[in-house]
Amino acid sequence: MPEYTALAVASVVLTVLVERFWLRTGVFRTAKYWLAMAIVFFFQVLVDGWLTKLSAPIVIYDESQTTGLRIPWDVPVEDYLFGFSMVTLTILLWVRLGRSREEVDR
């Protein structure tokens, strides 16, 4: 498996494990989380599509380090995996820290 792909998959697995076994916020069961992810995905397609378009790329990937699968508009699938991990981990920490602060304020 190419390095960039392996790291992208590992980031998703690690993020899910952090939620499942450590933070336990329950955000994966909320409609708000999935709506937020849909909004992020929409804008990620637009921005990543523009940055990585094969006709005039601004960001160039070493194709030997990726699967080469690009959907839609030439966006490498690995970018979606890293995007999921980055946004999800941020939300998880935000929710967890917010709950910790509420407990302190009581």
Rank of each mutant, 00 (worst) to 15 (best):
W22A: 08
V18K: 11
A8I: 04
V95M: 04
I39E: 03
F42V: 14
T52M: 10
L7N: 04
P2G: 08
G83S: 09
P57A: 10
P57N: 06
S11A: 12
A56Y: 05
F21W: 14
G83C: 03
F41W: 15
P72L: 07
W22R: 06
T67P: 03
Y33D: 00
A10S: 15
D74P: 08
I58S: 02
E63G: 00
V87M: 05
G98K: 08
V9I: 15
P57L: 08
G26W: 08
W50L: 15
V47G: 07
L69P: 00
D48K: 06
W94M: 11
A38C: 13
T30D: 04
G26V: 08
L97N: 04
V40P: 02
R106L: 12
F21Y: 14
S55T: 12
R20A: 14
I60Q: 08
V27D: 00
W73K: 14
I60P: 01
Y33M: 12
T30P: 05
E3W: 14
A56L: 07
F43C: 10
I39W: 10
G83F: 02
Q44A: 13
V59E: 02
D48L: 14
I91Y: 12
G98V: 11
V75C: 02
P72T: 00
V16T: 07
L69K: 11
G98N: 06
I39D: 05
P57I: 09
T66N: 07
V95Q: 04
I60Y: 04
R101Q: 02
T25V: 09
R99T: 07
V12K: 03
V104I: 13
D79H: 00
I60H: 02
R20L: 12
F28Y: 10
I71W: 15
R101I: 10
T90Y: 10
E103A: 11
L7E: 01
F28H: 03
Y80H: 01
T88H: 02
A31K: 15
V9D: 00
Y61L: 10
A10L: 15
V95L: 07
F41S: 14
K53D: 02
P72A: 05
T90S: 10
E19K: 14
A31Q: 13
L46Q: 09
L69G: 00
F84R: 00
